[in-house]
Design a protein around this nucleic acid. Structure first.
Length: 856
RNA sequence: GCCGGAGUGGCGGAAUGGUAGACGCUGGGGACUUAAAAUCCCCUGGGUGUAAACCCAUGUGGGUUCGAAUCCCACCUCCGGCACCA
């Protein structure tokens, strides 16, 4: 029994303690030091410290960024690699209510768990820069940025239809609601009209769209943001109401189809509805409007339902031909988009077509080219379709034009007569920025007794959360902060006015909108960050996190950053230069016929089938998202206990490409664990504990084959780490170790070079072996190796001989063999001759270094 | 419906116009051992064959090419996003 085996549980805490004591990963802040080296800012999406602790999905991205951070440090960069906590939020507040504790206590407890779990993985974070969004010296600056938004007119209060979630007792942002329910909990959401804080993100729509072109992000995320912003080109067109002075404006992307408009529709909330409805239609319209108001978003957006609507009794005048067309009210038109009113062209819009057929309204063809009669289906072609039936008053006609030209012509015509104008419309709405919660940033504003909104002076910040006895809304439905006593609520402003503090709080997203800036200068008590630090470190060079924030955090943070840019507080237009989304880690779950889930520890495999150990029942296995209810959550603590942090880190990256979804398979951790043991044995003789006797001071070139493999490995690991293709980099290191294991002697230089390559991936093991090899410094501070291109190519290479594209033989040739000799050798090949069957080669394709293809 | 991504052994996955299945897991065989574990070595896509070999094979069907997992067209399936946005 060897006594000196690889014991990760002994060496890992040892090196973690060393790094911590020596502050080995403290980010330089001395200006001299900063100037001396280029910078690299590598950032993780900081976690929300929930009560459940980490699962193995969290450290996947953290491990990838840590490997990059460690390599960059070794390559001579000043590296900023921080970690912190996105700590305000609803789940914590709910736990606090449930457990009867203060949310701050729950937060502190959860952070301690998260920090302990993260630190056990040996990440090279600069813990001196840890931030916590719920701490007053952090949210002070969140409030300060809010004041900047307010000063610039980008924060305003308005009576708006909001997403109200009765189960949670708060409003939610559009981005947090999907299919009529809150995305996090599935609780239904209803429409309500409430006075709330809004942020004018729409003012930045164009820049948020345009600047996507300048960042190195996954195309899918850019596309999601583009869709969310939803830019469309079109025109506003004015319609007069027959027999009155009223007019209304519609927005359309297809002004060319104006001659095909056979009716108009107003949204039920449109202010004109009540005014124009005729007496005999009034009862029907009022019933329809009040029913629509009571519907949830889910009901209203249910596509499978039939179109509904009611005629107002009023008529509009089509401005191009003075036709009288009826005005309807229908809930398929949304008040929140465009003008809340549309012209309906059933011939060329599917929704209008469906509605027209439902209510027997006329359908006119104005764009030709459809295969089926226009009465059967709407015809959509905005490129090659040709206009027909489109001649109106004053001799104006767009007949015979293709759609794009027709759009230009009719838009110009409308503009000349002041009947309309070309316009760009965005789908993006302003950001609903207040919540009726306790555990969030208080707004730094006061409602004065004379009904004005007044920002508090900057030197009053932070506006701290008041101590209250219950974290629930008041009995009369006001937010929890309204429970605070007058000593908090009532204030006198410097100008002598009295008022009451805002009792809403900011949403969870506020703190994460700028945390990457606080890391630059986290202890600054005078400013949110210093200009020098911002100048040096920004932008973030690499940002890694889950794709679930594609249109939430990432859009909000870009918006704030652009505002800060306009304030002259940051110097880059975009905060995150390169973004990478890691894929979700899934896990096997086991379910019996009754649908009950069984924990993996209760599962036994026999001949490829699964059975419950406790009941003997047969089980089905499936790969699913990890969740408590499915009993398939893998905790990093158990992996570390069994294999150590280095094996855990290595497996996280070896599982497969970082960006794809993949299942955790505990058996596979065994493979990387064996690899680490083999590395250990390259250095340590397990029987004696001394250095491996095969280690020798001879030059690297005395093992030429291994030296070549080493240089190929340096090259591959360097580039695969940079591009985050770490699974193949690790595979290459395994190839090296397999070769080194069977090598009769191990030149010491080869081994120390290899350990430097492996050290970002398995830092504890490599520090230990580095020390045992007598190296005085930490390997974390060693220099990253470089490769010799000549040593990355073999002297003799294998060239494939194909006949008609099929592999028939292999040739061992010198690496610089020329075309002629390759062709001669290939034609001489016996195996190839057999398939040539004496025929004359029509053509011989020679790819030097690769293959020869003989075509007969 | 629209937009994006993906389909390769028993499993995770390599290969982005040039030897399909690197590396790892699983399974099988062998060495060492009193034995087991660990370790080390060999084999492990399917088919025909004693063998040497040969044939088939990257979701399906076509195409381009000397040569296609890779490029093009059509289709199928799965995953993700958006969705009455005028």
């Amino acid at each position: 029994m060897p006594e000196y085996t690889y014991e990760p549980l002994e060496i890992e805490p040892k090196w973690q303690a060393v790094w911590q004591e020596r502050h080995s990963f403290r980010t330089p802040s001395d200006p001299e030091e900063l100037r001396a080296k280029p910078k690299f800012y590598v950032l993780d999406m900081f976690p929300y410290p929930s009560g459940a602790g980490l699962h193995v999905g969290h450290p996947e991205g953290y491990t990838a960024t840590d490997v990059v951070a460690r390599m960059k440090r070794m390559q001579g960069f000043n590296v900023l690699h921080p970690m912190g906590w996105d700590a305000f939020g609803l789940p914590t507040e709910r736990s606090a209510v449930r457990e009867g504790l203060h949310p701050a206590e729950i937060t502190e407890r959860n952070i301690e768990t998260f920090r302990r779990q993260i630190q056990r993985l040996g990440f090279s974070y600069d813990w001196d820069r840890e931030v916590n969004t719920s701490s007053p010296d952090y949210y002070r600056w969140t409030q300060w940025i809010f004041l900047k938004l307010y000063e610039r007119g980008l924060a305003y209060m308005a009576d708006v239809p909001v997403n109200w979630c009765p189960a949670l007792g708060t409003v939610l942002a559009n981005e947090e609601v999907k299919d009529g329910v809150y995305v996090e909990t599935g609780d239904p959401v209803e429409r309500r009209l409430m006075r709330q804080w809004m942020l004018k993100i729409t003012e930045y729509a164009e820049r948020l769209l345009e600047d996507l072109d300048d960042v190195d992000w996954p195309e899918s995320v850019k596309e999601m943001q583009r869709n969310w912003i939803g830019k469309s080109h079109g025109a506003d067109v004015q319609f007069a109401i027959d027999g009155g002075d009223e007019t209304f404006t519609v927005f359309t992307t297809r002004p060319d189809t104006l001659f095909g408009a056979t009716y108009c529709v107003l949204a039920p909330e449109h202010p004109l509805v009540a005014k124009i409805t005729s007496e005999d239609q009034r009862a029907a319209v009022e019933t329809y409007v009040s029913e629509a108001a009571q519907k949830t978003d889910l009901d209203r957006t249910d596509l499978s339902k039939e179109k509904t609507g009611v005629f107002t009794g009023a008529w509009a005048i089509n401005p191009v031909n003075d036709d009288r067309i009826p005005i309807w009210v229908a809930d398929y038109v949304l008040m929140g988009y465009g003008t809340g009113a549309i012209m309906a062209v059933p011939g060329h819009d599917e929704r209008d077509h469906e509605f027209a057929r439902e209510f027997g309204l006329p359908i006119i063809e104005v764009v030709s080219g459809s295969d089926v009669p226009i009465g059967e289906a709407a015809f959509i072609d905005n490129q090659d379709g040709v206009l027909v039936n489109s001649s109106g008053k004053d001799g104006f006609s767009i007949d015979g034009l293709k759609v794009p030209e027709a759009i230009a012509r009719i838009t110009a015509w409308l503009e000349e007569r002041a009947l309309g104008r070309g316009r760009v419309q965005y789908r993006l709405r302003d950001w609903l920025f207040s919540r009726q919660r306790y555990w969030g940033e208080p707004f730094p504003v006061v409602h004065t007794d004379d009904n004005e909104v007044a920002p508090v002076p900057e030197d009053w910040l932070p506006v701290g959360l008041p101590e209250i006895d219950q974290f629930r809304p008041t009995e009369d439905g006001r937010p929890p902060l309204a429970r605070a006593g007058d000593d908090w609520l009532r204030v006198e402003l410097p100008d002598g006015r009295h008022g009451t503090r805002e009792t809403n709080t900011m949403p969870q997203w506020a703190g994460s909108c700028w945390y990457y800036l606080r890391y630059l200068d986290p202890h600054n008590e005078e400013q949110a960050w210093s200009k020098e630090a911002e100048d040096y470190w920004m932008p973030v060079d690499l940002y890694v996190g889950g794709v679930e924030h594609a249109v939430l955090h990432l859009l909000y943070a870009r918006f704030w950053h652009k505002v800060l840019f306009d304030c002259g507080l940051v110097h880059t237009k975009e905060p995150f230069q390169r973004l990478f989304n890691q894929g979700m880690i899934l896990a096997h779950s086991y379910r019996d016929v009754a649908g009950k889930y069984h924990h993996p520890s209760d599962v036994e495999e026999r001949d490829g089938h699964f059975f419950s150990l406790s009941s003997g029942a047969g089980l089905e296995t499936q790969i699913e998202k990890m969740s408590k209810s499915k009993l398939n959550v893998v905790n990093p603590d158990e992996v570390i206990a069994a294999y150590g942090a280095d094996a855990m880190r290595l497996y996280e990256l070896f599982m497969g490409p970082l960006e794809v979804q993949k299942p955790w398979q505990m058996k596979d951790v065994e493979g990387v664990n064996r690899f680490l043991q083999r590395v250990w044995r390259l250095v340590v003789d397990e029987k004696s504990g001394e250095l491996n006797p095969k280690l020798s001071e001879v030059p690297s070139s005395s093992e030429p084959e291994l030296e070549r493999t080493l240089h190929k490995t340096i090259k591959k690991v360097s580039s695969d780490t940079e591009t985050l293709q770490m699974n193949t980099g690790i595979a290459q290191m395994m190839i090296f170790v397999n070769e080194a294991t069977v090598c009769p002697t191990l030149p010491r230089g080869i081994l120390t070079t290899f350990l430097r390559l492996l050290s970002p991936y398995a830092p504890h093991l490599c520090e230990e072996l580095w020390q045992r090899l007598g190296e005085p410094k930490l390997i974390a501070h060693a220099e990253w190796p470089s490769w010799d291109p000549d040593l990355c190519i073999d002297d003799t290479i294998t060239v494939v001989v194909q006949v008609n594209g099929k592999k028939r033989d292999e040739l061992q040739v010198a690496r610089d063999a020329d075309r002629e000799s390759l062709e001669r050798l290939a034609l001489a090949s016996e195996k190839a001759q057999k398939f040539i069957e004496g025929r004359e080669p029509k053509r011989v394709v020679v790819v030097p270094g690769r293959l020869v293809n003989i075509v007969v």
